[in-house]
Design a protein around this nucleic acid. Structure first.
Lengths: 290, 290
DNA sequence: TCGGCCATGAAACATTTGTTGCACGAAGTA
DNA sequence: TACTTCGTGCAACAAATGTTTCATGGCCGA
C-alpha cells in the first residue's frame, strides 16, 4: 500500500482508526470531531465530555505513533494554527514546474472555477424559478458532462415535487418524451459548447410544444437558447486544454431549486419533510453522534 | 464615558491597555499579538517567549476584570472557536420580503455557494490525483445528491481512462462491486451529512480490501473518511433550511480529474483525442458557426 | 530625608495535568 | 479446562500549571 501522506495528524489518526481497539476508536472519533477542544481543553475535561477514561487519550496518542497526548496535542495545535500566509488571493503564479507543479495546477483550477460564480446574474434565475413554480410538470435535460447537473436538479426538485419532475429519457428513449411536452409545462435544457444535437432537439421540441423553455448555457447564442423563455448563463471555459467548468451550472441549478422551493411555501416544506421522514424511517442515514 | 462594547476579550484588553502599568502593557500587547498561542500554550511558556514573569499574566487578567488567567484564556478560546454557524459574519439578513425577495434569495444563495470555494485545500487534491494516477482501477461512489458529483467524475475520468473507471453499482447491485475491490485500486466515496449507510459500507469495504480510499466529504470526521488515505474537504452547509451546497464538491471533482489527466501525460491526451474524434464522427455535436 | 505606595521578580503553594502500574474480565489458544 | 493475551477502568504518581505571598527597589509627597 502506498505510504499515506502524513500531512496532518488528523489524517494519521483517521488512517489508523479502523485498526484500533473499540474504546480507542471512540476516543479517536471524538478527537477528530472536536479537534478544536482537543487543542484547548485538558485531557480530563475531554474525557468527561466524551465519557471515557483519561488514560484512553494517552493510549490513543501512543497507538498512532506519538510519545504521548502532549505531543499529539502539540501536533494538532500546529496543524490548526492560522496560516501566516493568505490562503488564495494574490498568490504568485510562479513555478509552473518543479515538485509542486500539481498543487499549483489545482490552485489554478480552483481559482478558475470560483472566478465564474460572481458573474452569474440573479434576476433571470428568480424569474425562471417563478416559471418552474407555475409549471404543471417539469422536464430536465442534459447530456454528457451536463447530465450530472441535470440529475442534481432532478433530485432536488423531486424532493418536494416528486410527481411533477422528470428527467427526459429517464423511462425510455428520449424521443418518446419529446412528444409529451405540453403547454403549461417547463423544460430545462443544460448545455455548453460544443452543443449536442440531442439537447438542441429537446429544446426545439419544447418550443414547438408551447412549453416554457429554460436554458442553462454558457452563451446567449447557444442553439438551445433559441426561443427560450429564460436563459441562465454561466462560464464554462476555464483553464484551456482541460474540461470545462461546471461549478457555475451547479450553482445555478441549486439556486434555482432553492428559490423554487421557497416559492412553494408551506406545501413544499411539508412535502420535503415527508420525504425526509420516509428516508429516516428506512434508516438510510447513519445516526448523528453526540 | 460610554461603556465600551465587551464584544471580545481582545477588545477589552486593547481598551484597558493604556491605563495599565508598563510591564502589564508589554504582556498585554504580547497576548493581543499572539492570541493563538495564548489559548494553546501554557502561561509559563508564554512568559518565556515574551521575556516576562509568569505572574504578570495573572495580574493582567485580573487588571481587566477576569478572576484569573484561566478565565481570560477561556474567553479567548471561545472567541477563537471556529463558528459552527454563519461564516457569513455581519451579513444583515434584511429584506427577506418585498418585491425582490426572490432575487435577494438567489444572491444570497450564490454567495453562499462561492464562499466555500476559497477554503478548499489544494495539497490533498494533488496527492489524491497521484493515487488515482497509480491506481489500476478506479471506483466511484455517491448517493442521493452526491450521485451527480460521482457521475461527473466518472464521466470525466472515463474520457481518458475508459476501461479503468467505474461507478459502484453501475452494472448491478452495489454489493456485487464491493467484493471486487482489490489492492492497487482506488475507491472514491462522496458524501456529506447526513451520511448514507450505503456510502459508509463502500468505504469500509474499500478499506478492508486494501484499496486506497479517497473520501470527498464535508468533515474530516465523516464516517466514510475513517481509514481513508486521502480526504478532500468541502463545505456543504450553507443557507439554513435549503439544500446543501455541492459546488465545492464539484470543484474538487473537476480539479481532481484535471490533475489526474495532467499526470497521464501524452497517453491520456491521446485517449482523450480519440474519444473526441469518435464523438465528432458520430456527429454528436452541432458544428460551430462562424 | 523619611515613609508610604506601587510595580516587579522570585520562590513557595495548592491544584491540576498527563502518565503509569495494577487488577479485573473478556476473547482466543493449547 | 487451564493458560495466555489483550483491552479496559481505577488509582496513585511525578511533573507542570496557575496563583499567591513575600522581599526588593524605584517613585513621589511630606
Amino acid at each position: 500500500m502506498a505510504e499515506p501522506a502524513k500531512s496532518s495528524p488528523l489524517s494519521e489518526l483517521r488512517i489508523a482508526l479502523p485498526s484500533l481497539p473499540m474504546r480507542l476508536q471512540e476516543v479517536g472519533r471524538f478527537v477528530a470531531a472536536n479537534d478544536y477542544d482537543a487543542t484547548t481543553r485538558s485531557m480530563r475535561d475531554l474525557a468527561a465530555v466524551a465519557g471515557a477514561d483519561p488514560a484512553a487519550f494517552t493510549r490513543l496518542a501512543k497507538a498512532i505513533g506519538y510519545s504521548g497526548w502532549d505531543e499529539l496535542r502539540a501536533a494538532l495545535t500546529e496543524a490548526r494554527r492560522p496560516s501566516q500566509i493568505a490562503p488564495f488571493s494574490g498568490r504568485a503564479k510562479s513555478r509552473r514546474h518543479g515538485p509542486n507543479a500539481d498543487v499549483a495546477l489545482v490552485t489554478d483550477k480552483l481559482e478558475a472555477e470560483a472566478a465564474g460564480l460572481p458573474r452569474i446574474r440573479a434576476q433571470p434565475i428568480a424569474e425562471a424559478a417563478c416559471a418552474l413554480h407555475d409549471a404543471k410538470r417539469i422536464w430536465i435535460t442534459g447530456y454528457r458532462s451536463c447530465r450530472s447537473v441535470a440529475e442534481l436538479l432532478n433530485y432536488e426538485l423531486r424532493l418536494f415535487r416528486p410527481e411533477q419532475v422528470q428527467l427526459v429519457g429517464a423511462s425510455g428513449p428520449d424521443d418518446l418524451d419529446l412528444g409529451a411536452f405540453r403547454p403549461g409545462e417547463a423544460v430545462i435544457v443544460i448545455g455548453f459548447m460544443p452543443y449536442t444535437h440531442a439537447s438542441v432537439r429537446v429544446a426545439q421540441a419544447a418550443y414547438r410544444a408551447g412549453a416554457s423553455l429554460i436554458a442553462i448555457a454558457d452563451s446567449p447564442s447557444a442553439p438551445m437558447a433559441e426561443g427560450a423563455d429564460h436563459v441562465l448563463l454561466f462560464e464554462a471555459a476555464s483553464s484551456p486544454g482541460f474540461f470545462p467548468s461546471l461549478t457555475g451550472a451547479i450553482a445555478i441549478a441549486q439556486s434555482l431549486a432553492a428559490v423554487t422551493f421557497s416559492l412553494g411555501g408551506a406545501a413544499a416544506k411539508k412535502r420535503l419533510e415527508n420525504t425526509e421522514a420516509r428516508l429516516a424511517a428506512a434508516s438510510t442515514y447513519v445516526p448523528e453522534k453526540g
